[in-house]
Computed example of a mutant assay.
Amino acid sequence: MNDSDRHRLITEMLQERPFASVRDLQERLGVSPATIRRDIDKLDEIGVARKVYGGISANETSASGRLSARPYDENRDIAVDAKRAIAEKAASLVRDGDSIIVHAGSTCYQLGLQLARRNVRLYTNSMPLAAYLGEHGTCSLILAGGVLYREPGIIHDASAGAPDFFASRFFLGTQGISGEGLLESHPLLTKAIGELSSCADEIVLLADSRKLSIQPRNVVLPLSRIGTIVTDDGLSDAGAKMLEDAGITIMIATVGGQ
Results as ranks from 00 to 15, higher is better:
D157G: 02
L122G: 02
L133T: 04
D164W: 03
C139L: 13
Y123N: 03
Y132C: 10
L133S: 06
S159T: 15
F165E: 02
S126I: 01
V120A: 05
R150F: 13
V120N: 02
A144C: 08
Y149W: 08
R118P: 13
C139M: 12
D164N: 04
Y123Q: 05
V147P: 07
Y123S: 06
L113D: 02
P128K: 12
N125A: 14
R117E: 04
G153V: 15
N125I: 09
A116I: 00
E135Y: 14
V147L: 07
G134W: 06
H156F: 13
C139P: 14
A116H: 03
Q114C: 14
N119A: 12
G146Y: 07
H156T: 00
C139H: 06
L122Q: 05
G145E: 09
S140H: 14
G146P: 02
A116L: 03
L133K: 11
R121D: 00
G161W: 10
T138A: 05
V147M: 09
R118C: 07
V147Q: 12
T124W: 00
A162Y: 03
R121Y: 00
S140N: 15
L122Y: 06
L113E: 06
A162C: 03
H156D: 09
G161M: 14
Q114D: 11
A130S: 03
G134E: 07
N119C: 07
R117A: 10
M127A: 06
I142W: 00
L129H: 06
R118G: 05
I154F: 11
